[in-house]
Nucleic acid binder design. Structure first.
Length: 582
DNA sequence: GCAAGGTC
């Protein structure tokens, strides 16, 4: 008798494309009760031994199924002192809006011999897998649990993943479980404490939530740190908002998942097949053909590899006329970059000339390209930016035909722009690609920062001190974060958003900096430390319990110090928020 | 009324 196998992906789009590949396109689709996004796909598939030919239900969750919460006794803000939240009991429960999805998994698991987890191959995906496993166990204690390991939705790759299942990695599950617990305890304790303490100052602080989070606070810190230097506005070219477009192209199946943690292609990937699909294009197809006819080079590996996502690459061919303008530009960039990666290096000859002219030394560099190779297809990079230099011999003297002095001055950097903020967060391990925009939206919603489009031209902001007299916390200046997920977006889509801290934002960072902690909550180091320790858990060199325990002890000490020095925090608020001091 | 992390 055919056995039944339940497969669960992290999102509906993956469930569908896996179902398509495994079934060869022959599957039945069923809606589930209580959720319009999740579908069950049913088909047969011949798994590797011991399973063999099985009837399969392929379904999905929608990200995490569960949340960690304090038990009822500690949910009210006045139920305990905030410091007790470091040790208060917590419980995991299925999110209200995920109950139907959990019920679907439980009922499908009941008569299945095995559960195959198809969540994304990253830490969070591993934890989501463990949430699915828990729900399945509750209706079927003997179900066998396996995990399919895949990093893209190419047909052959998916079939290989189905036939070579591994086990869930409980180290990664534990690392994420620890993060969840710490973020909850630290966030709630410091948020309640800061909110309630500053409320006593009255006025504008009487009725607002002043939240702390291990990501939102360092994000605010970056904005405040750059503000005093904001003397002049520096003109800058516009940037398109491109990540969203890339995500769109991914969802439509044209390119791989747009993440950048990895710069090494797996040896097993069939790169030539991907190149072949591009050979029909009228712009770069000819180049793709030259690679297939012998120009192909296996890309050099970089040093980053998250073992989850391959470097961004085109998956399927799409003709440019089928794409919108923005999409076409992003797709073309991804394709050209990929083809360049599979090409020979370019070669060139560079010449450097040092010239002694009176007391001054001048230097010039020139370059001649000998073999263009990848430069042919990667049109974004030119080796022609430097001047062609005439031929000189060593110690030669010559008479210059012209000698000019041009005037210029060094300009101070302006307020932090959105791309700068994102790269600071990235470099310091604050948030993930998927959540960075949320953290930025959060500090806008809390009115810690405001955004303004950076226009060209020479506007001057306050030169002294904090540089922003206009940005009060008051309601009038509020812009909120109502543009969904809209971290600094808006405007006409071309201008760059810059971040201006409000007086409240400045007060919080200055206040916490002034408390005299070894490492301020407004700096990224504590979060970075958490990230390092999570990696240690994944590597097996640290236990979840040790990590949670030592991090809680560290933050308890910071909490006690904050209580002792709360006067410093209040003084900063009086100075900036009420005094209106920049 | 608190966080950060998934996803729609």
């Amino acid at each position: 008798m055919a056995r039944k196998i339940l497969c669960v992906a992290e999102k509906p789009s993956i469930a569908k494309s896996v179902a398509q590949h495994l079934s060869g396109g022959h599957f039945n689709t069923h809606s589930i009760r209580g959720n319009t996004f999740v579908k069950n796909y049913e088909f047969d598939f011949n798994f590797s031994p011991p399973w063999g030919q099985c009837s399969v239900t392929m379904t999905s969750v929608l990200g995490h199924l569960t949340s960690l919460e304090f038990t009822q006794a500690h949910r009210q803000w006045n139920s305990c002192s905030p410091g007790q939240l470091f040790d208060a009991p917590v419980e995991t429960e299925v999110d209200k809006d995920k109950k139907a999805i959990a019920a679907n998994i439980a009922s499908q698991a009941k008569y299945a011999g095995a559960l195959f987890i198809w969540t994304d191959c990253d830490r969070e995906g591993e934890h989501i897998g463990s949430e699915v496993r828990q729900v399945a166990f509750e209706s079927n204690r003997t179900i066998e649990v396996k995990r399919a390991k895949f990093s893209n939705t190419e047909r052959a790759h998916i079939i290989r993943a189905a036939q070579n299942p591994v086990n869930l990695d409980d180290r990664q599950v534990n690392a994420v479980a620890a993060r969840i617990e710490l973020d909850l305890r630290l966030g709630a304790a410091f948020t309640r404490y800061t909110t309630l303490s500053l409320r006593s100052l009255g006025g504008d602080l009487a009725d607002r939530v002043i939240s702390y989070g291990s990501c939102q606070f360092p994000t605010l810190g970056f904005v405040v740190d750059r503000a005093p230097k904001a003397w002049k506005q520096v003109p800058q070219d516009g940037q398109s908002k491109s990540h969203e477009i890339a995500e769109d192209l991914y969802n439509k199946g044209w390119i791989s998942y747009p993440r950048t943690e990895t710069d090494t292609f797996d040896q097993g990937m069939d790169l030539k097949k991907l190149i072949e699909r591009q050979s029909q294009d009228h712009a770069w197809g000819g180049y793709a053909q030259t690679l297939l006819r012998g120009g192909f080079q296996q890309p050099r590996g970089g040093r980053q590899n998250d073992q989850a996502h391959p470097p961004i690459h085109p998956v399927n061919y799409v003709a440019s006329h089928s794409l919108a303008d923005d999409e076409r530009r992003v797709y073309e960039f991804v394709v050209r970059r990929f083809l360049a990666c599979c090409s020979e290096d370019a070669t060139g000859e560079s010449t450097t000339v040092d010239i002694q002219y009176g007391d001054e030394t001048f230097s010039a560099t020139g370059l001649i390209v000998l073999e263009r190779n990848y430069l042919v297809v990667y049109t974004y990079e030119k080796w022609t930016s430097s001047q062609p230099l005439p031929k000189f011999t060593l110690n030669e003297s010559f008479e210059p035909t012209e000698a000019n002095i041009t005037e210029g001055e060094t300009t101070a950097p302006g307020y932090l722009t959105e791309p700068e903020l994102i790269s600071l967060m990235d470099a310091n391990g604050i948030g993930t690609d998927a959540t960075m925009a949320d953290h930025i939206a959060k500090i806008k919603e809390r009115e810690y920062v405001m955004t303004q489009p950076r226009t060209g031209g020479a506007q001057t902001n306050g030169v002294n001190g904090r540089g922003n007299r206009g940005a009060r916390v008051g309601r009038g200046s509020s812009r909120g974060a109502s543009s969904a997920g809209g971290a600094g977006r808006g405007g006409d889509g071309r201008s760059v958003q810059q971040f201006i801290p409000t007086t409240l934002g400045v007060a919080l960072i200055e206040g916490y900096d002034g408390i005299g902690l070894e490492s301020s909550l407004g700096k990224p180091f504590l979060r970075k430390e958490m990230e390092i320790k999570m990696k240690e858990i994944c590597a097996g060199t640290k236990s979840r319990n040790d990590f949670v325990h030592e991090t809680l002890e560290l933050y308890k000490a910071i909490f006690v110090r904050t209580q002792q020095q709360v006067g410093v925090l209040k003084a900063a608020c009086r100075k900036y928020v009420f005094g209106g001091q920049p």
